[in-house]
């Protein structure tokens, strides 16, 4: 039980860090990376939370998270493709 609680706290702090990355990003790709990481970690967090609350039969939600996260990523990439011709200043300038 203690291990589960510790893991959930760790995952929650990882989510907070990834969220910070998504909020304060150098480039647009960093932002997507942060959002993607929050998504995968949320799926794990829901799985752990099910065990913590003693009702692990709600794992379907974690599957939906993983799936929607993937589709969101693909949609973002497709969006870049449409807007590729537009000048994109913050990718070039700050690509440190």
């Amino acid at each position: 039980m203690l291990a589960l609680a510790a893991t959930s706290v760790a995952i929650l702090s990882v989510m907070a860090l990834a969220l910070a990355r998504a909020l304060k990003a150098d480039t647009v790709y960093d932002r997507i990376l942060g959002v993607n990481m929050v998504g995968t970690k949320t799926a794990l967090f829901i799985a752990i939370m099910g065990f913590l609350n003693g009702r692990p039969d709600f794992l379907d939600i974690a599957i939906v998270y993983a799936l929607i996260n993937f589709i969101g990523m693909i949609a973002v990439l497709r969006f870049f493709e449409y807007t590729a011709s537009e000048p994109d200043e913050d990718t070039q300038e700050k690509s440190k």
Binding site: L19, A22, V35, F45, M49, F79
Partner: peptide, 23 residues
């Protein structure tokens, strides 16, 4: 001001609120 970032953060917002609903 970058609307693309706004939409990304909105997606994040929905994800987090869904997590609150689970909780």
């Amino acid at each position: 001001k970058d609307l693309f970032a706004v939409v990304m953060l909105f997606g994040l917002y929905s994800f987090l609120s869904a997590l609150i609903f689970v909780n």
